[in-house]
Design a binder for these strands. Structure first.
Length: 320
DNA sequence: TAAGCGTGGTC
DNA sequence: TGACCAAGCTT
């Protein structure tokens, strides 16, 4: 199948309707594009644009500046954005690749936290490499355009290669993400304005592609968090492991402490479970493991949003 | 192949 | 409010 007519329509659409003002589209610096791509993984443009992209680059203007920083510093600039693994990968990548990020997809994909789609995005947007992107937007377009209810990763990549405009990969890839984000929406797609409409096999029933996934049940986990005081300091500890790894948190226990006064509960939703945090003011004699942090210094260490919620409530109760 | 990984926006 | 979703990657 020849898609040159579709490619022309996509190019015309992009001129008129593309999101040309996004700051990472006004540069060909691989580092600036890389940071945007990492931040945008599973994260909406609005969030990155309004809260994280510029402050992070003010703090870390070059790959070298990250390589020279501590992981704690990078996590601090990342706090609130979520999926903190990404901050660890960026730190590792900077240590490996500084002062210059490669632009070859094969080299990029070997760096930690850079998969095929991110590698292709960096290559396509910095040096206009003729490689396709397969993000959530393109994925949804492909399912509909080829009328597929299900597809494996391998099949999707093959479809992405099939449809790619090899003569204008930069415009094509940018446009596809914009079309997915503003036209080929998950619900109520605006097919009448879509440049792929003429050859879209799913045009008559876009809601059927892809087939909906069954929602998984989300368990509820209860945990007891401890406010352990010593003058103007409280006890904190640094998390290990994948979940929020590297961030500071309050000490916590599975069961309620015997020598503790319950202050309140906070409900906090993660993607895969709901956390009910019971907060106790701990008055036991034996302190849990941790480090004493001055309450005035809490803003300078990286914590998760749950800790932010707890601290805000404690301040409201003038307990902090 | 599927689960695990955060947070916030949207309807 | 709950369910789904967002410029995915690793194991």
């Amino acid at each position: 199948m020849n898609y040159s007519d579709i490619h022309t329509d996509i190019g015309t659409w992009y001129e008129r309707c593309g999101r040309h003002d996004l700051p990472w589209r006004k540069t060909d610096d691989p580092y600036l594009i890389y940071i945007s791509e990492m931040m945008l993984q599973q994260t909406q443009v609005k969030t990155v644009l309004e809260r994280f992209y510029f402050p992070f680059l003010d703090r870390f203007p070059t790959l070298k500046s990250i390589a020279e920083a501590t992981l704690d510093d990078v996590l601090h600039a990342w706090q609130g954005l979520g999926y903190y693994r990404r901050a660890r990968y960026i730190h590792e990548t900077a240590r490996i690749a500084a002062p210059r990020l490669p632009t070859d997809p094969g080299e990029l994909v070997r760096l930690p936290g850079i998969g095929k789609s991110t590698a292709h995005a960096i290559a396509a947007f910095s040096v206009h490499a003729p490689v396709p992107i397969l993000d959530a937007n393109v994925r949804r377009i492909l399912y509909r355009f080829f009328a597929r209810k299900k597809a494996t990763e391998k099949e999707l990549w093959q479809l992405a290669e099939t449809l790619l405009d090899r003569e204008n990969p930069y415009t094509y890839n940018q446009a596809m993400m914009d079309i997915g984000a503003t036209v080929c929406l998950p619900k109520n797609p605006d097919c009448d304005t879509c440049p792929l409409e003429r050859k879209c096999l799913g045009r008559s029933a876009p809601q059927d592609y892809p087939a909906p996934k069954r929602a998984k049940n989300r368990p509820v986990k209860r945990r007891c968090y401890l406010l352990v005081e010593n003058g103007a300091k409280i006890l904190m500890r640094k998390r290990k492991g994948d979940l929020l790894g590297g961030l500071w948190e309050l000490p916590s226990t599975e069961t309620a402490p015997k020598e503790g006064e319950k202050l309140f509960e906070i409900v906090h939703d993660y993607t895969h479970f709901r956390r009910i945090a019971e907060l106790y003011r701990y008055r036991g004699k034996k302190n849990p493991e941790g480090e004493w942090i001055d309450v005035k210094e809490l803003h300078s260490i990286a914590t998760s949003s749950l800790e932010k919620k707890i601290f805000a409530r404690l301040q409201k109760l003038t307990l902090l």
